[in-house]
Amino acid sequence: MIHVKLLAFAQAADRLGWREMLVECAPDETLRSIVERHAAGFDFSSSRVAVDCEYMPWDDAVGAHAQEIAILPPVSGG
C-alpha cells in the first residue's frame, strides 16, 4: 500500500467540502476508484485528474511512486 495526498481545487473543493487529505491505496488501484472511496457520488465528467502535476485518464492506475492526486474542475484562468 502507498500513501498519497489527495487534493481538490475550486468548485471541486467547494462541492466535496475538503481541499486536501492523505489517503491509502494500492498502486494498481485506479484514480476513479480512489476518488470514489473518498467522495461518494462525485461527478467525474465535471473534472479532470492529475498525478504529480500531469493530467491522467481517470481509469489509469495510480502507480507505485505517486505522491499527489489532484482533482481539477474546468480551468478558467486569464
Binding site: Q11, A70, L72, V75
Partner: peptide
C-alpha cells in the same frame, strides 16, 4: 498561448 492556457493550465476564477 492564452487559448491554450484557458484549456489546460490549472487556474480558476470565482
Amino acid at each position: 498561448l492564452i487559448d491554450r492556457m484557458k484549456q489546460d493550465v490549472p487556474i480558476w476564477k470565482i
